[in-house]
Amino acid sequence: MNVILIAVISLGAIGLISAIVLYVCSKKFAVHEDARIAQVAEVLPQANCGGCGYPGCAGFAGACVKAADAGSLEGKLCPVGGAPVMEEVAAILGMEAVVTEPKVAVVRCNGTCENRPRTNVYDGAWNCAIANATAIGETSCAFGCLGCGDCVAACQFDAIHMNPETGLPEVDEEKCTACGSCVKACPRHIIELQPKGKKGRRMVVMCVNKDKGPVANKVCAVSCIACGKCAKVCEFDAITIEANLAYIAPQKCRLCRKCEEACPKNTIHAMNFPPRKPKVEVVPAEKPARVSNGNEPTKVEQ
């Protein structure tokens, strides 16, 4: 009897002491997680792609709550969920959603098999990062697409695919969430995130070659040779030429398409525009003959 009593009392005492310790600890070291974080995380797509710039969806949820406490949700965008998800997030946090323009990945190289002749053969491991570290690639362009498809492997949304005919990746704009995985994967920094624009329309310089004009001209039929004609015709100061390369600032571009016509190498592309109506009023014979001023970039020879 005595033995049983001792056992019950001692065990009871141990239990009581443990309970007190546990209670004190749970109060003292409690982590107060904002309930809103879990709520916000719930409406996020859970792709954990990191496209928002935070480590996964939970990280982004935490950042949103913090930003809401600070006063504004500006600059916070889940590229996968887009505006609808951000509205839900804003509703949970009792804020107003800040409209951010949706973006899309753009592959800025048009060095297809016809445009950019193959000058050598690469037979190493089929991986852009390795091909880029090994040598210039299969063509003489040190800046263009290598075609091994690191971007395709990086995309979690099945939105970028290799076109076997051109050997270049193509973005499925419907599926692209602008998470930026392909931008990070491309060792030559060809892919860029650009605002989608109205009806997906935008003007893009489809080249990243920073070589001097004559060199760039030689390696590819559609390379930018930095002749500056596009910058001259642009009325909105949207085009800058830096490091032998033209760049169209999407925020300033008003989609007039004058640069597309001016480009002597067809480097500038108008994306998602309806086909042009054939011009009838211009009679070709009346056009003044083009006078070569000696700076004709297409004729530069090395």
Partner: peptide, 13 residues
């Protein structure tokens, strides 16, 4: 296998 290609890539990174 292209062992060295990959190892070299890892080494530079």
């Amino acid at each position: 296998r292209y062992l060295l290609d990959y190892i070299r890539y890892g080494k530079t990174t």
